[in-house]
Design a protein around this nucleic acid. Sequence first.
DNA 1: CTTTGCCTTGACGCCAAGGGCAAGGTTTAC
DNA 2: GTAAACCTTGCCCTTGGCGTCAAGGCAAAG
Lengths: 131, 131
Amino acid sequence: MRIGELAARTGTTTRALRFYETQGLLDARRASNGYREYDEDDYRLVSEILTLQAVGLSLEDTRPFVECLRAGHETGDSCADSIEVYQRKLAEVDAFLARLNDVREGLLAKLAGALKTPPGPCVVVPEKEES
Amino acid sequence: MRIGELAARTGTTTRALRFYETQGLLDARRASNGYREYDEDDYRLVSEILTLQAVGLSLEDTRPFVECLRAGHETGDSCADSIEVYQRKLAEVDAFLARLNDVREGLLAKLAGALKTPPGPCVVVPEKEES
DNA sequence: CTTTGCCTTGACGCCAAGGGCAAGGTTTAC
DNA sequence: GTAAACCTTGCCCTTGGCGTCAAGGCAAAG
């Protein structure tokens, strides 16, 4: 199939597919007229990339999965490198969650503190006469 | 004090301070030689900006706080606009937390699935001889 | 007098993940 | 035969928050 169909089937854009190619994640045979030609393996590969992105991985993080698929494995996460990415990303997410919870606490505290001393609304910038 | 000292005292860079100025968050008197001159109010203002950023606010989000300080309030969050920002940001953070938890679930599920069928490490790309 | 070291403005670079457009070649359908 | 719909490459644009020069002006110390 050609790039437009692949894009439609995977639910992405031709632009994204060409971008993946420049990143070395995807690679296409060329027809005699120069058009890219894809097969079902490519379809699975792109699907994997999109699924992983939806789960929160960066494009770069999907690389091990792609290589795993290229190596002939059924799924992209049948390889040690991919598992490592899962674990690393999970750790990152956990760290981010912790940090975000701190932020939340901080915001709550600041909000509470601010609400204790509300001298009323702040009628600011009256001298903003930009006539 | 001049820009270098303010940067040092607040723990940021001169570049950041000038950037804040272009964003209209900070504004400096000029000495006769053109050097920016800051006072303790500016120090507090920059400190507020940095604290808020550390709590997860974008620069743009700090604007109401800055204007609140400029209006003569003791703290940047004594104004209604600032409170609103707190609340909006809190909602954003909560939404982000929810989304991140989903991501975490997705990752855990994928990791679990992948660990159930581990055919061993993936010995790929042996032709990578970069001698 | 010269060397540092601070200061000025301006302009481009960076990161991710593509979007958008131009200018042209191809193929398909009417 | 020609217009619509597809494909190609290439280049600049986006968002945030600055970093990194570049080229030059001032200031205090030796």
